[in-house]
Computed example of a mutant assay.
Amino acid sequence: MTNKNNLFPQLFLRIAIAVTMLSAIADRFGFWGKNSAWGNWENFEKYTKQLTFFLPESLSTFSAYAATFLEILFPLMLILGFKTKIAAYGAGFLLLIFALSMSVALGIKAPLDYSVWVGSAAAFLLANQEKYSFTIDNLTNKK
């Protein structure tokens, strides 16, 4: 059973991870205006190519699209509580890949400044919960 004291912190963690990831999506499409890191897709593609310098250009471009797709999919799954464990593991591995790529390409300071390691660790912590509160998973698993 889920500890009653764990219900809201777990929900808060799910939403915090999801909103943080969706904020990065909003940034690359210019929704944050002057407060953005990339501000548009072209700048995000350049940044992705910088992080994936070891890949051929076509794979680097593909990775920008794949990362964006997954950065939309996993947070939406987390918010809805749909396949929550899979979404949490997916977010954890995706953020781990980002952290490692940023560390190699830009140095360790970049992923630390953006708390990418913390986001990855938080997602893995969430993935290891026995049961999730306030989820579609709970509605579909009830007998």
Score class of each variant (00 low, 15 high):
residue 65 Y to I: 09
residue 62 F to W: 13
residue 29 F to T: 01
residue 45 E to G: 06
residue 38 W to S: 06
residue 119 G to Q: 07
residue 143 K to F: 13
residue 86 I to G: 08
residue 142 K to Y: 15
residue 138 N to K: 14
residue 82 F to V: 01
residue 132 Y to F: 14
residue 124 F to T: 06
residue 89 Y to S: 03
residue 27 D to M: 01
residue 110 A to M: 07
residue 143 K to A: 14
residue 133 S to H: 12
residue 29 F to Q: 01
residue 25 I to N: 00
residue 4 K to M: 08
residue 118 V to W: 06
residue 139 L to H: 14
residue 3 N to V: 04
residue 52 T to R: 08
residue 26 A to N: 13
residue 42 E to Q: 10
residue 140 T to F: 15
residue 58 S to H: 10
residue 24 A to H: 14
residue 11 L to V: 08
residue 125 L to Y: 10
residue 112 L to P: 09
residue 60 S to G: 12
residue 95 L to W: 01
residue 34 K to Y: 04
residue 89 Y to Q: 00
residue 85 K to Y: 02
residue 16 A to T: 08
residue 138 N to R: 15
residue 79 I to T: 10
residue 84 T to M: 04
residue 7 L to S: 12
residue 117 W to E: 04
residue 124 F to L: 06
residue 98 F to W: 08
residue 15 I to A: 03
residue 86 I to M: 14
residue 77 M to P: 03
residue 43 N to Q: 08
residue 56 P to N: 12
residue 137 D to Q: 15
residue 116 V to Y: 05
residue 44 F to N: 02
residue 110 A to E: 09
residue 6 N to T: 14
residue 99 A to W: 02
residue 67 A to P: 06
residue 123 A to M: 05
residue 109 K to W: 11
residue 131 K to L: 12
residue 49 K to Y: 08
residue 102 M to V: 01
residue 61 T to M: 07
residue 7 L to P: 03
residue 5 N to H: 11
residue 104 V to S: 07
residue 128 N to S: 10
residue 41 W to G: 05
residue 9 P to Q: 09
residue 77 M to S: 12
residue 40 N to I: 04
residue 21 M to G: 05
residue 136 I to H: 13
residue 39 G to D: 02
residue 131 K to W: 13
residue 59 L to F: 12
residue 133 S to V: 06
residue 31 F to W: 09
residue 36 S to L: 02
residue 113 D to F: 07
residue 97 I to F: 13
residue 98 F to M: 11
residue 101 S to E: 13
residue 100 L to H: 02
residue 33 G to D: 03
residue 102 M to I: 01
residue 8 F to K: 13
residue 80 L to T: 09
residue 54 F to I: 07
residue 11 L to C: 03
residue 11 L to N: 05
residue 11 L to Y: 11
residue 51 L to E: 10
residue 103 S to H: 12
residue 74 F to M: 08
residue 141 N to E: 14
residue 130 E to H: 11
residue 51 L to S: 12
residue 35 N to C: 10
residue 20 T to R: 01
residue 15 I to D: 00
residue 52 T to S: 12
residue 89 Y to I: 00
residue 111 P to N: 10
residue 54 F to K: 08
residue 98 F to R: 00
residue 30 G to A: 01
residue 73 L to Y: 14
residue 7 L to Q: 13
residue 67 A to I: 12
residue 40 N to R: 02
residue 117 W to I: 07
residue 106 L to R: 10
